[in-house]
Design a protein around this nucleic acid. Structure first.
Lengths: 205, 205, 205, 205
DNA sequence: CATGAATGAGCATTCATTCAT
DNA sequence: GATGAATGAATGCTCATTCAT
């Protein structure tokens, strides 16, 4: 079998694994389930992956979201538009990886390796975005703010809303579309522009 | 055996179940584990609960958080202080139920009954807090705002930060203490007081 | 509690045990089931009986059918009427003990003590009826016949028919009533009166 | 593994299951027992059968007795010989399936599917034999008789005697051999030839 | 006498993993 | 490479029996 086919098959198995685990959880996703979904036998899976855990670890590693490459372009935009772009990339990233996010949220609590993946993805995002916000403060586009807090507000807002609306399926919430994102960003910016989220202890004397 | 002892034992079993499931997940928490943790035998668990699922369902049901009873008092405070109180109650509620929150987050994706519990708890909080915010807007303490958005911002912020810091254990974040909460509320209020999160489509003509 | 009450309670427990075991089999009839049916607790059953097996053994022992006492009266009747009476007593005996017959049939294969009960009941019937038939042959009411064979034909017929119709519930069979019994007896007697079931090896030279 | 081996192993498991259940009953025959008897592990049984119940259902289904194919030949014989052949086929059929008969008798009372198997096997036999007897009456080989009654007498006799002698092991009964069968048939035919088992209600006026 | 909480061995079933073909 | 039969430890659950109250 050609190398390409081999890569495709690995990919197919990883995707099936994540897809099933998203619905049923890691423990209730059996090797046989994955094999059947891919029309192969259990033995085949063990040709490509050393164990069930390995299969999932690989599946999660190679699909972590990356905001980094888009940031340089976005930095050139005015902050209103920049934050909208960032929020949309973040939400779309979650959406495309919705199944993976679910698996990671569940499994990270008990699997340190998966926790590590999750944390490093969030930290990459945090660092990039804090840097972006600091630049904008320096440039005077928004007032002086505690960037840790405003990152938390920004990310927590979109993450939780995505989780409530698109993963848990809570009813009667407005759609998480561009309009909602623009309204949210506008709301946030009203305060951020004025500044003031520097805590007493951080204030320069 | 007295009724009291019987109730205590049920309670003990439920707490052990949640505690273990928080660390290991529902599927990896065995009846034997729970029994050993409580120094009883498996048979005893089945004397008190019809099944493993029943044990967990009961354990989750009777510990859902309640903001409701404190709100009337809080409503009398100025909004700065009110939101701090609400945030602290919310964070402390999550903290006290940290283990339960973890279990619910994992299991709600595949167990509709648990999802229902989770959703109704969130909705209760949402309704109470949206009502509070609308009253404050009417009273002129904050400007006109889309209460759905600002609830999402408020809750999402504290929920995500709690999850990152205290559940996932992400390093290098400031502690989620009163100071952090006060700073966050101040940051949020800068914008909320001024108002402006009414979307174009909602604006009165 | 008076002795009478105590006897009643034992009786009630035994009847419940047989009743449930008839439907569900011995193994699927639990002590708890029996206790619930009688509105007592499991502990109570162990006051009256040493074990589950004991309860069932006692329940089966004291309800074995008895043809013996009626035979002297029946012997005075002409054989046509006598056999009808015997068949009716047999069928009614099975009917009243239908549940017990089911339990005995199932359990006798693996429990030697129950087998013994079953066999001795059948043997008592066999001996009584063979004696009756020999007397009737001697009296010339029926011809010379191998009484073992004609007992087998007589008992086997009614037992199997009862089992098929009233225990298994096979459809489209005529009812096992007096008319059917009279017709059957008449059919059997046609041959028995003429005689001839003495095998070659038994015939006097 | 070849398909043949796979079929053999299924067959071996089914036979072991029936064999053990005959001695111990369905409930006391454990999967482990069956596995040990066949020198395989429990997992192997579940590789071939979905459940314990399935294993037994299959085991019972594919061994139901069939008289049908022999009847055309037997019909050509004089009735004395024909009934002897039929009785011998029936008795040998029971003998070869002795273990299965025991299991079916016990389980059919509580398992509707097994009851259905049992009833349909008996009904097939009943229909074939009633047809045979009607033909013989029409041909004048035996007198006018109620075929339902004489079938019941014929089958009930041999079935009960088989059950008493070879399953329950009641002592002091003559062996169920060809001689016994010939004597029984002769006894039955004495009456059948003369006829007379038409009930009053059925008699033509 | 009566209770029912507690026991723990035993059961049917699952499933990740191995390996001869 | 690919197969799928075989493994066996582990799991949720049952139930006859005991015994302190």
């Amino acid at each position: 079998m050609s190398e390409k086919q081999s890569i495709d098959r690995r990919q197919m198995l990883k995707e099936a694994a994540i897809h099933l685990a998203c619905r049923n959880g890691y423990d209730r996703t059996t090797i046989k389930d994955i094999a059947q979904k891919c029309d192969v036998t259990v033995g085949t899976i063990y040709h490509y992956f050393a164990s069930k855990e390995d299969l999932f670890k690989e599946a999660l590693v190679d699909r972590l979201p990356r905001l980094d490459e888009s940031l340089p372009e976005i930095s050139k935009l005015p902050i209103e538009e920049g934050l909208v772009q960032i929020a949309m990339i973040t939400v779309n990233g979650l959406r495309q990886r919705a199944e993976m996010v679910s698996v990671i949220c569940s499994e990270s609590l008990r699997n340190p390796e998966i926790l590590c993946l999750f944390v490093s993805a969030i930290n990459r995002l945090r660092e990039a975005l804090e840097k972006y916000l600091e630049d904008k403060i320096a440039a005077g586009e928004i007032g002086p703010n505690n960037v840790k807090i405003i990152f938390n507000i920004f990310f927590g807002h979109f993450f939780t809303y995505f989780f409530h609306k698109e993963r848990l399926g809570i009813q009667n919430l407005p759609p998480l579309d561009e309009q909602y994102i623009r309204d949210s960003v506008k709301t946030l910016l009203v305060g951020w522009k004025q500044g003031g989220s520097i805590s007493e202890s951080e204030k320069p004397t």
